[in-house]
Amino acid sequence: MKKHVEDQIKNAIETWDEKPADLGLDKDLVWNTIAAVQPKIQDQINWYKVSVAVVLLLLTWGWGNTYFANRLLQNEKNVMANNIQNLSLEINKMQQSKKELKKSEEIKTDTIIKVINIANESSEHKVLLQNKQQLEQKNNALLAENSNLLAQLSAINKQHLLLTDSLIVLAKSVKKEASTQLSTSSNICKDLALQVNEEALALLTEQSKEKLNTAPTHKKKFEIVLFNKSESYTSEAPAKTGITF
């Protein structure tokens, strides 16, 4: 569509709009409609007023609430400020007492130093200190010796225990040997024949008589010969005096 056609249409419509001829407008209907709508506006205004009043009430309530809350907070703040003041006073007091304590401690150390100075100056105390030192040295030496002795004692105890153990083992072995000997002797008992060298026995008896008066000049063997079917045993142990059969 060309521009001039649109312009033509636009002009036609604008002219039509401005025409005074009636197009069926019922002015009474329009005014009646407007009059009927007016109360609605009044209602709207009333509702508007009510809503405003409600909002004002809410705002007032909120303001009052915040005011009271603010007052409470103010009171709490005052209480807290008082507490803070009290605490600061207490802290100051504690700091002062701490300083005093420090001062008193310093004084004590001074007095101790003085006492030590006085002790050094006195000769009696020096002697006593020397004696004390000597005694301590002796005591230490004694303690060292005591510990050495205890160590030795424990070593001896250990050796004693070892010896007793070996003796017990020896006794056991002797017993065992004896029992074996007895068993072997019982086996050979049947074919046992005892030959006694009577001369030697007579000599032995004589010697025993002589021993009562004179010392022995020479030793003579007492031979016991045990005959077995298979072997013969000869005991060459020194004969004990006073053996009787």
């Binding site: 419509i13 039509w16 709009d17 401005e18 025409k19 005074p20 009636d22 197009l23 407008l25 002015k27 329009v30």
Partner: peptide, 11 residues
């Protein structure tokens, strides 16, 4: 202006 406005509304 009622005629003028009515014509616009009608248009």
């Amino acid at each position: 202006y009622s005629d003028y406005l009515y014509r616009i509304c009608f248009r």
